[in-house]
Design a protein around this nucleic acid. Structure first.
Lengths: 194, 194, 194, 194
DNA sequence: AATGAATGAGGATTCATTCAT
DNA sequence: GATGAATGAATCCTCATTCAT
């Protein structure tokens, strides 16, 4: 029962299935056939809608980053003070649907994929740069010249917490993770103030 | 003419080659044949000395962790005060030969491998636990009840910096990375003191 | 808005596109989708108007042979003497639009296709028989009993020149090719006369 | 029961099987698996000893050309006069083992392959150039300035006869084919003499 | 101790073809 | 009349692994 306009539907289904499969199996070595089956179609169709497995993976990354970007933007509009803005970014970094086992594992896989797939590397570098500059911009009123250094540490801490949770069997606790970053933030700001 | 006691020599060569190849190619998908060739032997011999590719990878991880453990231990014996001990651990975390591109990339690959190979997961969990408890033990005199939380953050920050540098093309700067963790440490301790 | 009588138009477009694509890519391994796209339609429609890829290929051959037959017939009506008639056939064999790179390459591909597709083999055998008997018929007044043998050689020479030019990058020179066959003809006839 | 020095044996077997399979099935679309099976090994081994299917095909061509070259050289050493030398080349062109159905069909397939595989094109161009210049060199004492033109025609005639026989079901008759070329040669030379 | 030989299993990708709309 | 949707089947190629020597 083929309908028209399947393309976006199929692509979305494939991207979703890709993230899930990578999260579930823990590796980008999941088969295109596995992904396609999980998305309810043949592997041939997956190749039809994306050019290659690499394309699928890259689009899955892009999708996660898009979701994350939306989350951050959404949180920022509600924030009033610089401090709230920094916290908004931190909270968004550990918010659903990105901070569950599946996405965390997929995310770490993408970091490794970046060693092999230049587009993945580019996406991650953009993400890193944005996160750092975003944090630094809002930190400046709070920590002045140290803003960028603090931003780098907070960003690394965030990614480190992702890495940590990719090893844990339990569902990651976003609130606790965010609280850790917040604590680090408080410490850094206190030091600045003194 | 086969010499006696080749076993440890061959195994060492293979482990070294494994780390180098993973670091160079950026993925654990390097072939056993590639590794063996880099180690100057046939892939059949690699299988002879290790049972399987997984075994080789796990031993390569173990080797990195052993080196790291030695580094930490060596630094600790020279440290006098609790504060020095914490710093010793931090410095060791970014010391050669572990903190170069090759090892950083291999390290991240092992994190992902852990999703698929239980022994890799076990090794990494042991590493994480030790790092945390090690840091916490020496932090306790400095930050009291908050010691474990601070330790968790420092550990995550360390791994986050590894993750960050796995994406960079340049050789990672260990001194700068260590200084970042030190700055975070200072901030945390200052907050405790107040 | 579908027009009436699209069938012949579509079929012609497909046949034309088939020859062009085979000539361009150099192989019958061109995709039905490629051919259809070049003909400005979907591959499904191509299958609608022809039953299968094989059908398309066979019809493309038939088309080339039809064009060639028309060329020969057209040239023959203007020829007066037996000698002129033989030359008419020769010239027609290297006339446009059949003797350009595209058609030459397609033609050679059809020879190979004949090993796999019986209809292609039949078409080519008919072509060969006609060419030979055609030449022989007009040669008889000139070379008597040797006519059929001479015809066979001229026919083989013609096809050999096609084969030769299928390898050349430049546009084939029909006049020069025809002149070669003419020279052979002169030689054969001179020998007969003596 | 693996022995040493299998490489040349396997390669020869594969090349032989390749020619046979192409000759039998009539197309280069024969599977690597088919070829390998016909050569008594797995397709993986075929890929091990040659890099790719293309490599196998190119080597098969090279082998045919080598055989042909040897045939020609062997015939030439026994020839005394220029006329005998030309005839030696002609006879060698239709001698066993190259002029049987299998090789004729394979040969035509290689002509088509040349449109897609540059190495095949190069090999064929070398073959054509050598055949022409070889013929022309020995024709010069006999036909003077016309030597190269005559050589071109004889060469084209030879290939045309191959093409012709690739369509026939029966085993090609080398003697008769050679006689055709000889007749053409006689005619050309007679014309020169007059 | 060491390796060339060998393969089974698997995976990405392509494509002719069919079908519902 | 026309096409997007969909797939089964096939093909090339890779690789970990085993084995006889």
């Amino acid at each position: 029962m083929p309908k028209l306009g399947m393309q976006p539907i199929r692509r979305d289904a494939l991207i979703k299935a890709t993230i899930e499969q990578i999260g579930e199996k823990g590796t980008t070595d999941v088969t295109v056939a596995q992904i396609a089956r999980a998305a309810g179609m043949s592997s041939a169709l997956a190749h039809h809608y994306f050019g290659s497995k690499s394309d699928i993976l890259v689009e899955a990354m892009r999708q996660i980053l898009r979701t994350y970007g939306d989350l951050v933007r959404g949180a920022l509009v509600q924030a009033q003070t610089p401090h709230e803005r920094v916290q908004a970014i931190i909270f968004a970094s550990f918010a659903q649907p990105n901070f569950d086992r599946t996405h965390v594992v997929a995310w770490m896989n993408f970091y490794v994929l970046a060693n092999v797939e230049p587009r993945a590397a580019r996406l991650l570098r953009v993400y890193q740069r944005r996160l750092r500059s975003n944090l630094a911009a809002h930190l400046r009123p709070l920590s002045g010249a140290r803003a960028m250094d603090v931003a780098k540490r907070l960003a690394a801490l965030i990614d480190g917490l992702y890495l940590y949770h990719s090893l844990r069997a339990e569902a990651p606790n976003g609130a606790r993770a965010a609280e850790h970053v917040n604590a680090a933030l408080r410490a850094e700001l206190a030091l600045c103030a003194s």
